[in-house]
Amino acid sequence: MSAATEPVRFGLVVFPGSNCDTDAFQAVATFPGATARYLWHKDTGFDDIDAVILPGGFSYGDYLRCGAIARFSPIMDAVRGFAGDGGLVLGICNGFQILAEAGLLPGALIRNTCLTFVCRYVNLRVETTATPFTSACTPGERPRIVVKHNEGNYTADPETLARMKANDQIVLRYVDAAGEPTDAANPNGAVESIAGVCNEGRNVFGMMPHPENSVEDGLAGGTDGRCIFRSMIDHVLAARAAHGAGAGGDASRPAAAAGGAR
């Protein structure tokens, strides 16, 4: 089997309070060229993984600040190393919160301005396709995806925001039906209607909406979330092709007992 036809291997980090892990697993499984495996939070490393997803949920209950405990979990050292080596890391909702807490993404996520949990379909606008997570989208594409969170209000100081803009790190915004980032269309009060951001290296991406709940026809969520997974798979395959027969798992990644506790 050639490197190009080997499946793209997703690792899904499972904290004891993760609750969108199985949804993400099944979302990956809807892509013929992809496989998924669970990574247990107590594990200190993993290998043979092309992309890591930190799924939604309530990592360790999150009765304190969301993700404040999770950032110290053993698996996060491995994720940090993986990201440092250029591996793709997607944080969805609680995963985004954890990545921000861990310092892998700029800014922070605070309580929704409405002070309640919000579960709602929102219109997004893809602000840049120059990321491994949105490359399969068309510029300005407006996927409609569900958000469901208590603390999705993205914030960052003005200097950080300016730097992020200069680096094209703002990936998704909440917009209205006409495509404008209005206050009414912003479900949580996020600064500048920001719904998703990437790091400077562009290999770590966090988003509050749940693309894994928008991948299958016949369900309420629709299929607008597919472009995120499609982009990641395409990116891994393209990277493999560029590296010739080198496949995905390069030697610099931390090697340790793999998880998959469930």
């Binding site: 099944q26 979302a27 939604g56 309640t116 949990f117 919000v118 579960c119 369900l219 309420a220």
Partner: peptide, 24 residues
């Protein structure tokens, strides 16, 4: 109902507000 996660587990076919909820 917008304060409830009605979509997790990826089975929801009809969301709240309908005559009845439907799951696959």
């Amino acid at each position: 109902y917008e304060q409830y996660d009605y979509i997790v587990q990826a089975n929801t076919v009809q969301i709240p507000g309908s005559d009845a909820a439907v799951l696959r």
